[in-house]
Amino acid sequence: MTNTSETTATRTTTGSDSLGQAPGVWPCLIYSDARAAIRFLVDTLGFSESAVYGEGERVDHAELAWPYGGGLMLGSSKPDSPLRQKQADDGSVYLVVPEDSVADDLYRKVVDAGATITVELRDEDYGSHGFTCRDPHGVFFSIGTYRGHGYAG
Rank of each mutant, 00 (worst) to 15 (best):
G70T: 09
G75W: 08
V93F: 07
T44F: 10
Y94A: 01
L72W: 06
T8N: 12
Y107I: 09
I30A: 02
P136W: 08
S81C: 02
R58S: 11
P82M: 07
G130R: 03
D112P: 09
A88R: 01
M1Y: 09
T12C: 09
P136C: 03
L45K: 10
H61G: 06
G71E: 10
D89A: 04
V25H: 07
D123I: 11
G20Y: 12
G148V: 07
Y107V: 06
S101M: 01
G70V: 06
T2Y: 08
K78R: 07
T145E: 08
H149T: 13
E99M: 01
E57Y: 00
T118C: 09
S18R: 13
R147D: 07
D100V: 03
Y31A: 14
L45S: 09
H149M: 12
T2M: 08
T4V: 11
E6K: 13
A152E: 15
A115R: 13
V93D: 05
G54Q: 02
G130Y: 05
C133A: 15
G69W: 04
W66H: 05
E124T: 15
V93H: 04
V42T: 15
G148F: 06
T14A: 12
F47Q: 11
S128V: 04
E6I: 11
A152K: 14
I38Y: 07
M1S: 11
F40S: 09
A113I: 15
A9V: 12
A115P: 08
T44Y: 13
I143S: 02
D89V: 01
Y126C: 10
A62T: 03
D43A: 14
G69I: 08
S18C: 12
P79I: 00
G15C: 07
G144R: 03
F47A: 10
T13V: 13
Y151W: 15
T4K: 10
S128D: 15
A34G: 09
G153E: 14
Y68Q: 02
R108I: 09
E99I: 00
A9M: 12
S32M: 02
T2F: 02
I143K: 06
D90V: 00
R58W: 02
G75A: 12
G144W: 02
A36W: 10
D100E: 11
E120V: 10
V110Q: 09
Y94R: 01
T2D: 07
V139K: 02
G46C: 00
S101P: 00
C133T: 13
R84K: 07
F131S: 11
